[in-house]
Amino acid sequence: MRTDSRLSRVLHALIHLKQAEGPLTSEALGEMLGTNAVVVRRLFGGLRDSGLVASEKGHGGGWALAQPLEKITLLDVYRAVGEPPLFSDLVSEDHPECLVEQAVNAHLSATLRDAEAVMLARFEKLTLAMLMRGVKLPVLRGKASRKRS
């Protein structure tokens, strides 16, 4: 099963937007993230709707931060990308009539809910600026380099 990496990919892109000298195009962000510009536009649409980024059309346009990194929490970004699953599906429903499977699933489900609550509480306290403490990145000049960071 493929894992959902939307959250980490968008966090990566948002931090690079801070380092950019101007807006970055969907194509430049797609190249940086190793994905298609259409995927970037789809992901960033939710960020724009949440007020985290702004988009400018036309020559010299692209995506830019709408808020400083100090004001954007991981929870904000998590919600803006559609609240992807935080954990893989650990619950099996191969034999729903089995009492052992029912007991295991009940405990696993409760534990996963508890872990998710703790994780989301931590997301609410972490800003993108906190993620960047001690990291020095080069300034991006409109186009992403061919190398991914």
Rank of each mutant, 00 (worst) to 15 (best):
R2F: 10
R2T: 13
D4F: 09
S5I: 11
R6M: 06
R6Y: 06
R6C: 01
S8P: 03
R9G: 02
R9K: 12
V10K: 00
V10R: 00
V10M: 03
L11A: 10
L11P: 02
H12L: 12
H12E: 13
A13V: 07
L14A: 04
I15K: 09
I15M: 12
L17M: 10
K18W: 12
A20Y: 03
A20D: 03
E21H: 08
E21T: 07
G22H: 05
P23Q: 01
L24C: 03
T25A: 12
E27F: 05
E27I: 06
E27Q: 15
A28Q: 03
L29V: 11
E31N: 10
T35A: 12
N36A: 13
N36R: 13
A37N: 10
A37Q: 14
A37F: 11
A37H: 14
V38M: 14
V38W: 09
V39Y: 11
V40N: 02
V40K: 02
R41W: 02
L43I: 01
F44A: 04
F44K: 02
F44P: 02
G45E: 08
G46R: 06
L47G: 02
R48A: 15
D49N: 15
S50R: 11
S50G: 14
G51T: 09
L52Q: 04
A54R: 14
A54F: 07
S55W: 05
E56F: 09
K57M: 10
K57C: 05
G58F: 08
G58Q: 09
G58R: 10
G58E: 07
H59S: 14
H59E: 13
G61E: 05
G61T: 05
G61M: 03
G61V: 03
W63D: 08
L65S: 02
A66D: 05
L69S: 04
L69I: 10
L74D: 00
L74H: 06
L75I: 04
V77I: 08
Y78S: 02
Y78E: 04
R79P: 00
A80H: 00
A80E: 01
A80K: 00
V81S: 01
E83R: 07
P84D: 08
P85W: 07
P85R: 13
P85H: 10
P85G: 08
L86Q: 04
L86V: 05
L86F: 03
L86H: 01
F87N: 07
F87C: 10
F87L: 15
S88A: 14
S88I: 08
D89I: 05
D89T: 10
V91G: 06
D94T: 06
H95A: 11
P96Y: 06
E97W: 10
C98T: 04
L99N: 12
L99M: 13
L99E: 15
E101F: 07
Q102H: 12
Q102R: 15
V104E: 04
N105P: 09
